[in-house]
Design a protein around this nucleic acid. Sequence first.
DNA 1: CCTCAAAATGATATCGTTACCGGGAACGAT
DNA 2: ATCGTTCCCGGTAACGATATCATTTTGAGG
Lengths: 354, 354
Amino acid sequence: MKFEAVTIKDIAKALGLSTSTVSRALRDSYEISPETKKLVLEYAEKINYHPNPIALSLKERRSRSIGVIVCEIANSFFSQTINGIESIAYNNGYNVIIAQSRESFEREVLNLQNLTSRSIDGLIISVSTETTDFSYLKELHQKGFPIVFFDRIVDEIDTHKVIADNYKGAYEATVHLINAGYRRIAAISNPALLSITRERLAGYKAALTDHGIEVNDSLIKYCQHGGMIVSEVEEAVKELFSLPQRPDAIFASADKLTTGCLRILKARGLSVPGDIGLIGFSNTDLTELLDPPLSIIKQPAFEMGEVATNLLLQLIESKRPVTQFETKVLSTELLIRGSTKKKTTKKVSESVGQ
Amino acid sequence: MKFEAVTIKDIAKALGLSTSTVSRALRDSYEISPETKKLVLEYAEKINYHPNPIALSLKERRSRSIGVIVCEIANSFFSQTINGIESIAYNNGYNVIIAQSRESFEREVLNLQNLTSRSIDGLIISVSTETTDFSYLKELHQKGFPIVFFDRIVDEIDTHKVIADNYKGAYEATVHLINAGYRRIAAISNPALLSITRERLAGYKAALTDHGIEVNDSLIKYCQHGGMIVSEVEEAVKELFSLPQRPDAIFASADKLTTGCLRILKARGLSVPGDIGLIGFSNTDLTELLDPPLSIIKQPAFEMGEVATNLLLQLIESKRPVTQFETKVLSTELLIRGSTKKKTTKKVSESVGQ
DNA sequence: CCTCAAAATGATATCGTTACCGGGAACGAT
DNA sequence: ATCGTTCCCGGTAACGATATCATTTTGAGG
């Protein structure tokens, strides 16, 4: 099970030079005569020499690889983000090691241990819905380890962060619902403490308030596992529909919840938007083909991955400890489709009358 | 930018032992006295020692990481496969480095170079639609480098392979269409040389022949980029509809083509299944929520990833060169939904009459 | 002819770990 | 007392690459 073993030594031996000379010739050092350089370079090319990255890592104490932890790559938002991360990383000679937390705190910690013990040079992470204890990340960060948060960020750790404009995205979506005639607008969210939940619900609430609609906490439901478990979305919808006054629209604040809601609503035999309007955050490119075509708030996932990676590489390659951190906020996109079709005037007045 | 540097030397110095002793104590060698072992282990635990994986890699000439090349992780089938790969790899102490070819031969070769120069211990790959020259993989394989193919396999390279039962999946889907009353069944495929194309089209043709329907080559369309470029699917559909006798159903032989077809058909204002039936390979979990709910052939993606990884680890960890290879074939699942709804009896007789 | 410096190359230590070889101490057998 | 074994442990050389210091060669200047 051994393969090529073309090392600098082989070149040295073949050409009757020392390894030092070969090393310097390959790195185009000024100390080496042009003839020797040419000789070495041509021979290296001929026998297809490639420096051993592991030896380099050991010597340079860096692995040129970065870790990424997301809850699941099958989620469109995350796979798109990873595309962005990968594109920048590869262009800079880094490779990307991906780990999935599956919304489990335990797996997240294990993954991180695994990644750090693999000596990654930096980390890009969107924390799981379960995570409330960030001490394990804090420790790492305090040692000076480069970390960039994206999407689900951690306020208490001061480092670079990349998010979509969740507040504005949610605000616009809610305003759209209101303008379309909906009045009893429910929200289905991830756990309350998650950054994206806070930001999106804040936008949702602000939109309601700004339009003279009272925020009703019984219309806000939280799914502890971010929709990973189907039954929790089912439960949330069920509760909403057993309220004395049931909602006329739902704002879902995450991809899995948005499509999950649609699934449950259809399973209950409800027509969207006839019986209830639906809008939500989503990055799936199939939403327009759904029945009904879903109105969504879309995040610039690819770009977020790019930005996060550029920031991380800055941290990694900085000579001195970085103390000034920034939070980049990227715009979301509101796509209006059939699932939030305007209600008839009659229905609107009915709703208002409630 | 430097962090912990707890090495075996630190332990040795602190305890007044040699590095050899510490190393052996940590590895529970019989040559070390129980007391010394205890001393070392406890101290190592206390200062949170972890062996440096890079130094180990250099010493052992293995990186304990495997490379995966797929066309894109945003494709449900591949992200599900990667989940399977990851689960097995992590459980065996390997990590997974993912690269995307985006259906480009050039990127595929670059990715592989990158991965091998990173000294991965083995490779799991599903080749791109563009790839027809496999010499770069062949070379590697001949050197004894562990490779496992999945999904889009390469016949001319003899190694472990994992595929779905593409023939049977396509056969069953086509039979289903026939039983539902469709007669002019078109096929939209990846490039003709791709293994999955060959297998799936063979199943499609066999089903037609077995039911007394003549195979009509003008009803079979190929998309050179596997649907990565929307216009090629559009073109394929356009051509099908400009035939003297247009098809009454489409069998799409890959995920992107299946949803791509639906998109194009809807854009053309055609009703599915009213104007045309549609079935295809897909692993997206949203297909049942589409308009219409799509009938699909689903591959056991997660399991394929698991199986492929187990086979790869066998290759990697085998003491002697492996010469006996196997091809595992896993069953597909046929999910019947609205997009292939039975035509009325009247229509059936009409079709038959054509 | 000597000195000195620049130019070109070599030797060696290092990164963290383990494999291999050896070596001292203790102890029983002769 | 001598020898051979065990039992523990230390020293050193790798793995592949580079950085630092050392050495040789060359040639110009005096």
